[in-house]
Design a protein around this nucleic acid. Structure first.
Length: 589
RNA sequence: GGCGCCGUAGCUCAAUUGGUUAGAGCACCGGACUGUCGAUCCGGAGGUUGCGGGUUCGAUUCCCGUCGGCGUCGCCA
């Protein structure tokens, strides 16, 4: 070992000891007669002092060439700092290392991204290009360590409960369900391609058939879709599958994990079982299947009242099967000026809303707006009652098809909640959304799609609806929601060939297609498949939420940019024509 | 693919309605200094204003295109 201690380790207990530290020059302070260096490693900072009489003159002389991010091995004596010189801001601030000699292990160019807190954090493109410097920043190291701790906490939790960690292939076959696949051309099989897994879904079900009744894996997954602040093309799931369990067993298992990690990582007690809400209720009350439950501002239906209004925008929508729903921004008139409301109107337009109807609640309790003349006073009063209107409130309505009111009002609710600071961003909220629809209808293709995946089991008492009313059929599917983010999701799977056949029929997948796409799973299910189900947790998002970060890149060591490139390695890159030839690939142009 | 924001010194930013030689802090280089801790003081160097085109007597500023970063819609079973 080149060192005896780390830079975060020394304290008054080691005073008088001769020690050797290794680390990077965080800052240096040259005083002519001597100099001070704050030496950094991932454990902390220690002040090392090159001063007479402890440090020989020639060592002091040499130390004057030290610069930021040089790598040093320093040996010296741990000493208490002189009277009044302790630094309360440093964990090691009561002591210092009086250097007797040092070895320059390496030099550094002037860093474009400064790992010390001395310069402001540069733009993200530079941070990604010089990721080795960015990752050297204590803030980033803290997140990486927290990520490791969360993953270890998960692994321990499942290991303690007899789960077996089994790896599944990264090179698999493409199944046209779901997201766009990343493809890998086969050299051996001309014209054939592997696909990188969107999740180990089919393998883990096969493992259940194989009798490994408790499976867990930290699995890398790939989806070739456009990126977002909380979405990367490759991401990590904590993948779990169990046999001989029902939905309650699965949820209780994850409840325990949430409680454990919330306690260990954040020091908070999360009561279990976590609250559960059905999908239908979430859509009705919040307009979204992953509502942020840290604040209210719920959606309130006024379709019945709207149908009575002279106001054509309301009545026409109400009478043609649409919905008129609103939210009450409590005391929002102070926060949103007329101009601010115009801004909100533009905002909901991005989500397909054709307009935003609004009322201010005046001091006398009456609703006032440019559109108020289209309503009788009696009707306005009814709206006020329904919306729980009080003086100072701002009522906002969207009239449109149900889906549009959901999207627009969900977005509006999130924006207003954030801007009016209706919740403390530090608080954590965990909950389950359950009973997702089995299918949604594709208007363009005029067919049903599996909402989760085609092996999802319907609720036991919804079996008949597979034939009578697929749109109402609900699934044994559940999502874990943390602070309005989908942090995990899973289902109980179909293990009955008859039900599976019905689902395929409904999805328009004939026997031939089913065999082509996932014949191996259907085969396996015929050889004694146990009842089984599972869940996958988005580890990157967990870390993002636990670390209070606002984007997922900051909790991934080497993330991709919005255009899915790696600025450090410059991946993806072009390849040699020879490589393409071997893969039987010709490019256009 | 659509919409929006951004791009000026190594880094973070500034620059009047479009007007002289594009500035500041930090970093860097040289010097001074025996206790600092974002050390301080003195001096210096550092620019294809992302790139290409246009408007103009004159463009960092206005317009078009393009590249890149971010956010978002579509997309993401």
């Amino acid at each position: 070992m080149l060192r005896t201690h780390t830079c975060g380790q020394l304290g008054e207990g080691q005073i008088g000891e001769t020690v050797t530290l290794c680390g990077w020059v965080d800052t240096y302070r040259d005083h002519g007669g001597g100099l001070f260096v704050d030496l950094r490693d991932r454990y902390g900072l220690t002040q090392v002092v090159f001063n007479p009489p402890d440090t020989p003159a020639e060592v002091i002389e040499a130390s004057k060439t030290l610069r930021a991010e040089f790598v040093l091995q320093v040996t010296g004596t741990v000493a208490a700092r002189p009277e009044g010189m302790a630094n309360a801001k440093m964990a090691t601030g009561k002591i210092e290392l009086r250097v007797t000699g040092y070895e320059l292990l390496n030099k550094s160019l002037t860093p474009p991204v400064s790992p010390s807190g001395k310069e402001e954090v540069p733009g993200e493109d530079l941070r990604l290009k010089h990721r080795y410097l960015d990752l050297r920043r204590p803030e980033m190291q803290k997140v990486m360590m927290q990520r490791a701790s969360i993953i270890k906490g998960m692994r321990d939790y499942f290991a303690e409960r007899d789960f077996i960690d089994i790896e599944t292939p990264v090179l698999g076959r493409s199944t046209p369900e779901g997201a766009r696949d990343y493809l890998v051309p086969s050299r051996v099989h001309r014209g054939a391609f592997y696909a990188l897994p969107q999740s180990p879904q089919l393998y883990k079900q096969i493992l259940m058939v194989a009798g490994y009744d408790r499976y867990v894996q930290v699995a890398r997954c790939f989806r070739d879709e456009d990126l977002r602040a909380d979405r990367q093309p490759e991401f990590t799931q904590l993948d779990v599958e169990m046999s001989f369990v029902d939905q309650d067993d699965l949820l209780a298992l994850i409840d325990g994990l949430v409680a454990k990690l919330a306690k260990e990582e954040l020091g908070i007690d999360v009561p279990t079982p976590l609250p559960r809400m059905t999908y239908d209720e979430a859509m009705e009350r919040f307009g979204h299947d992953a509502p942020d439950l840290r604040f209210g501002l719920e959606l309130i239906d006024c379709t019945d009242l709207a149908s009575e209004a002279e106001f054509r925008v309301f009545s026409a929508v109400a009478k043609s099967g649409g919905r008129v729903r609103g939210i009450n921004a409590k005391q929002g008139t102070k926060h949103f000026s007329r101009r601010g409301i115009d801004g909100l109107t533009k905002y909901v337009a991005e989500y397909g809303a054709r307009g935003l109807a609004w009322f201010r609640v005046e001091d006398d309790g009456k609703l006032n707006s440019t559109i108020a003349k289209n309503f009788t006073p009696e009707l306005l009063e009814k709206f006020g009652e329904r919306m729980d209107a009080e003086p100072g409130d701002l009522l906002l309505f969207v009239a449109d098809q149900y889906e549009v009111t959901c999207k627009a009002l969900y977005a509006l609710r999130s924006k207003i909640g954030r801007e009016m600071e209706l919740y403390d961003p530090k608080t954590m909220n965990f909950s389950w959304i359950v009973e997702f629809p089995m299918f949604d209808y594709d208007d363009e293709a005029k067919c049903w799609h599996a909402m989760h995946h085609p092996f999802t089991a319907p609720l036991a008492d919804h079996l008949e609806m597979l034939e009578t009313d697929p749109g109402k059929c609900r699934a044994q599917a559940y999502d874990l929601v943390i602070n309005g983010s989908e942090a995990g999701g899973g289902t109980i799977r179909i293990h009955d060939a008859e039900i599976q056949k019905k689902v395929f029929t409904l999805l328009g997948i004939d026997e031939k297609t089913a065999t082509e796409r996932f014949g191996f799973l259907l085969d396996a299910l015929q050889y004694g498949a146990p009842p089984h189900g599972g869940i996958a947790l988005g580890i990157d998002r967990w870390v993002m939420l636990f670390a209070k970060l606002d984007n997922i890149r900051d909790c991934i060591a080497f993330p991709k940019t919005q255009k899915a490139s790696d600025l450090m390695t410059e991946a993806p890159g072009e390849v040699d024509t020879m490589q393409l030839k071997e893969l039987h690939i010709k490019l256009d142009e």
